[in-house]
Design a protein around this nucleic acid. Structure first.
Length: 945
RNA sequence: GCGGAUGUGGCGGAAUUGGUAGACGCGCCAGACUUAGGAUCUGGUGCCGCAAGGCGUGGGGGUUCGAGUCCCUUCAUCCGCACCA
């Protein structure tokens, strides 16, 4: 071959890999397994830009490296194919989302194939494929048929629960249930007395009708149907998850979102809160990501306290992290939405309270966020009784108390909580100090400017816990509350159950039908329940989801099927398990496959999934673990978040009111407007004026004010987006430079996890490097110049330095520094005029994970059988990099002054003599006394004078 | 406000355990080849200074023979959360 021709080489080897199924992998007990996974993409219509493949390249390099190291590597890819854009497109154009999705996947696949990834495509999954979502539906049925037993701390079958009810009722059952489910229960259906708190006997259970039993079990199921306050987006006709809503508008589309009560399927993720929290300590993720999850789970320890309400039978349950401050509780606050507000409000306060509740309800989240400092509230006229001292304290309502957290009611301790303090000051409520800092005296709270948020100190004004310090006081108070049945110690979590219903078409149908108004799971043999055809992808006129449009959307027996579909995270929660055995049509995956592949050794993806996918998948996996289906409780052993690649936008400056453009450094002399210009028209910040004039009709006759005969553009780092005209797509770059250059350059940009700007110019440096590598094999005339001569010391040294560095760098995911080392190695071999097969062969293996196409080509050029993917990674040999002499940097008082070559085995005292004897040293000693000479062998020499 | 991360040349970044700061690449400068260069090759390139030398890892302070690296303090930027009881 005359010259390096990436097009020819890359096409040739991509074909070779595909035809030979080089990367097909199977369970193989003779080799250790390694599972490398990329977060699978949603195939959008725009195709890939240079930011998308960053993580895929890194994981591909790692996979190829692990193969060379003798591992059996599972490295699959697939598509998260359900989603809003395809559905939106269907609504707009009538094209079935499946068609759009297939088209987009095809395009993604072409783009991915051109980059030379070593995926086992035989294992591809698509979440929208019935053969895949069969198992999503299957898992949902299992969730529906299980409950969470707190005694055994795992999921157990509803069947067993029913047996327990039949023999003992539910008095002894300790389950994770919907809080206060018995309060919202249909009183006509269950004539329980108020203080029964939902407890029933075995006889009562047996006397229940089928419908009553089903209603009751719903409070226990891990997938359950309940009235839920949801984020309703009427423009989309659907409910959105909290993380799909930004500032009261839908993240996709930007439509307004309101709070609304609806019957929704939910997953009882909260049952797993503690295990999800504990699991974080066992996995190797970035600390920042773990912190985000910890915060999301939001564990807080404290106590629940019951307050009687004067004149009522009802009690208010309140959660507090500081039961010790109970004596300082001078009022209570309920959320405006609290169920008891209406009941307890006194007639004289009715109007004011009603007005406030109305106002708070109609306030958007955005308003509430913007006005966090504004203090509002209203007195209900009712009083609670402080259980520890019998004090009568007023009950207020205020929107700083949230319905969704704790019980929607708090005891306010103004002296030691800043919000309570502000509230008390605003409404002139008493403030009692109950904690005093060690060694200080209590002061008059009237003089305070802020609360004392005391995490430590001694208790005062607090009855029997006086003099105790905070920690002991908390324990003592809880003990007292429990003994007197006034409360109990407890743990509260912020994590909420996941709403699992969407009023959408393009998602998994629920395997659920309704009989007598109650939901039942389809028989597993009926799966997959395929998505039906509809005439339109919109809600019905009565507001029902699109599936309600389907004809005959009923079971064989004529029972109506559920019309909601599952949300986006349904299909992605267990996809990594399906890859293990993705063509299995009998089960989700075989036991054998799961016991071999176990878990993901390396998971790569963006940090935008920190609290969505990465929590739901862990939950999904833990549930399957409880069922004994998977053998690892945590699915993602190590996880790396790759950074985003930002765009580098270019700008031109138009003189206002004209069609004349001013070069960057002259723009300040004029009134100008900055406009984004397509980065393809700019090279090295110089605008191609002719191309610019052709770019858009309105610039056809544009005039220019130049500097040095050139038009210089301004630039800025921004998000890569079409509207900013700064999108780089991989296809163009691969066409011009080849996939190998593209892969290496993406890695060379900087550390994987950093966000970094895309610099189009820099890729040429890597391209030069690849061509330089080629020239170690071929001269300018295209003649092969590789020889069989024995390598010399210098050549072996640089090779083995490279072997060591590449290995170390890949192991610590430092791909950018590895690329540098390849450059150093090739530069040195070029300088040494080394064309020796023995050296080059090893180098080609080293580089094959990074630049697999050229590596395969050169490997076969050297006379090897094609197929570099499964050869052995070169062994590092220390002998070759050993040095006899070391060039010591010699410092005086810590400043490096000159270098001195000395034998590595020279004893310290001789080194000292040699240094002091050195002529150059005299200058820096300059008659002063040498106080100390520090010698670190093979590192430095420091002379202290 | 809380939590996390990051600050090193003109730019991306390197320095893995406290031991030669700026590897490697871009850009820039000079030169060679060339009809030409936005091709290729060679050399130079942290800053100030003619030089000797001095100054340099956001700022200030400390520990140490020696600090980009450790400690204290402060500033800036980015990300996440945001009345969480």
């Amino acid at each position: 071959m005359l010259e390096y021709n990436h097009r020819e080489i890359e096409e040739k080897w991509q074909k070779f890999w595909a035809e030979n199924k080089t990367f097909k992998c199977e369970v193989d007990h003779s080799k250790p397994k390694y599972y490398v996974l990329d977060m699978f993409p949603y195939p959008s219509g725009a195709g890939l830009h240079v930011g998308h493949p960053l993580g895929y390249i890194a994981s591909d390099i790692y996979s190829r490296y692990k193969r060379l190291k003798g591992f059996n590597v599972l490295h699959p890819m697939g598509f998260d194919a359900h989603g809003l854009p395809a559905e939106q497109h269907a609504i707009d154009t009538g094209t079935h989302p499946a068609i759009t999705t297939d088209k987009n996947i095809k395009r993604y696949r072409e783009q991915l194939d051109r980059i030379g990834f070593s995926y086992d495509w035989d294992r591809e999954v698509r979440t929208s494929d019935p053969q895949y979502y069969k198992w999503t539906q299957w898992t949902f049925i299992q969730l529906f048929k299980h409950w969470y037993n707190k005694k055994t701390d795992k999921a157990e079958t509803i069947e067993d629960l029913v047996k327990e009810f039949e023999t003992k009722g539910n008095a002894e059952t300790v389950a994770v249930v919907t809080p206060y489910w018995y309060k919202s229960i249909d009183k006509n259906l269950f004539p329980f007395e108020e203080d029964r708190d939902g407890v029933f006997t075995a006889d009562e259970w047996k006397d229940m009708t089928e419908k009553q039993k089903q209603e009751m079990l719903m409070n226990y199921r891990l997938a359950y149907l309940s009235d839920t306050m949801v984020n309703w987006c009427s423009a989309l006709g659907t409910v959105l998850a909290n993380d799909e809503v930004k500032d009261c508008f839908s993240e996709r589309g930007g439509h307004p979102v309101e709070r609304k009560l609806m019957k929704q399927w939910s997953l009882r993720v909260s049952a797993y809160a503690q295990r999800l929290l504990d699991g974080l300590d066992k996995i190797d993720w970035f600390e920042s990501l773990k912190e985000m999850q910890r915060y999301w789970i939001g564990r807080s320890e404290g106590g629940s306290v019951f307050f009687r309400i004067k004149g009522f039978e009802d009690k208010l349950e309140v959660f507090t992290t500081r039961p010790d401050t109970l004596w300082g509780a001078t009022f209570m606050v309920l959320a405006p939405e609290h169920e008891l507000v209406e009941k307890i409000t006194t007639p004289d306060r009715k109007e004011a309270v009603k007005k406030y509740v109305e106002w708070a309800k109609n306030r958007s989240e955005r308003e509430r966020q913007a006005e966090t400092k504004k203090i509002t509230g209203e007195f209900t006229g009712a009083y609670g009784i402080n259980p520890v001292n019998g004090e009568k304290i007023p009950i207020w309502i205020a929107d700083y108390v949230l319905t969704g957290y704790g019980t929607g009611a708090i005891m306010a301790v103004p002296a030691h909580d800043s919000r309570d303090f502000a509230f008390a000051r605003n409404f002139n409520l008493p403030i009692i100090q109950v904690v005093v800092k060690e060694g200080e005296e209590p002061t008059d709270t009237q003089t305070w400017e802020d609360s004392y948020d005391a995490k430590e100190g001694k208790m005062i004004n607090s009855g029997f816990i006086n003099e105790l310090d905070v920690k002991d006081a908390i324990k003592a108070t809880i003990k007292y509350l429990e003994e007197n049945e006034l409360g109990y110690g407890t743990v509260n979590y912020r994590l909420r159950d996941a709403i699992f219903s969407r009023q959408r078409y393009w998602g998994e149908p629920f395997p659920i039908y309704y009989k007598d108004g109650m939901p039942y799971a389809l028989d597993e043999s009926k799966l997959p329940l395929e998505l039906p055809e509809v005439d339109k992808y919109l809600p019905t006129r009565t507001g029902e989801p699109p599936l309600a449009r389907a004809e005959n959307w009923v079971t064989e027996d004529g029972y109506p099927l559920e019309t909601n579909t599952m949300p986006g995270f349904a299909g992605s929660s267990g996809y990594y398990l399906r890859y293990m055995d993705s063509r299995n049509d009998k089960e989700y995956f075989s036991r054998e496959a799961n016991e071999y592949w176990r878990d993901i050794d390396l998971y790569l993806g963006g940090d935008e999934h920190a609290t969505g996918h990465l929590i739901y998948s862990r939950f999904w996996n833990m549930f399957l673990y409880d069922l004994g289906l998977v053998c690892e409780e945590e699915p993602f052993k190590k996880l790396i978040n790759q950074g985003k690649i930002q765009g580098r936008s270019s700008f031109v400056y138009r003189k206002n009111g004209t069609n004349e453009f001013v070069s960057y450094n002259l723009r300040k002399n004029y009134d100008t407007t900055r406009l984004h210009v397509d980065i393809n028209l700019v090279d090295n910040d110089v605008l191609d004026i002719d191309a610019f004039r052709k770019w858009r009709p309105e610039f056809k006759n544009a005039g220019f004010i130049l500097e040095d005969g050139k038009y210089i553009c301004g630039w800025e780092i921004e998000k890569m987006s079409k509207s900013k005209h700064n999108v780089q797509n991989p296809d163009d770059l691969i066409e011009k430079y080849g996939a190998d250059t593209f892969r290496m350059y993406e890695m060379f940009l900087g550390p994987l996890e950093n966000h970094k700007p895309w610099d189009t110019k820099g890729i040429e440096g890597v391209y030069r490097f690849i061509k330089k590598l080629w020239r170690l094999f071929y001269d300018e005339k295209g003649k092969l110049i590789v020889n069989d001569k024995q390598p010399n010391e210098k050549e072996l040294k640089v090779l083995h330095q490279t072997i060591r560095k590449i290995q170390e760098d890949i192991e610590r995911f430092s791909f950018n520094t590895a690329v540098s080392q390849f450059m150093i190695c090739v530069n040195e071999l070029t300088d040494l005029k080394c064309h020796k097969k023995e050296i080059l062969e090893k180098l080609v293996i080293l580089i094959s994970p990074y630049a697999p196409h050229i590596a395969e080509e050169l490997w076969s050029v050297l006379g090897n059988e094609p197929g570099i993917s499964y050869v052995a990674f070169p062994e590092f040999n220390e002998e070759y990099i050993k040095e006899n002499i070391f060039e010591y940097p010699v410092s005086f008082n810590g400043k490096m002054r000159f270098k001195l070559e000395l034998p590595v085995d020279m004893p310290k005292d001789e080194i000292e003599k040699a240094v002091l004897a050195e002529e150059k040293s005299q200058k820096y000693i300059a008659g002063k006394q040498v106080r100390k000479v520090i010698i670190v062998p093979k590192k430095i020499i420091n002379v202290v004078v």
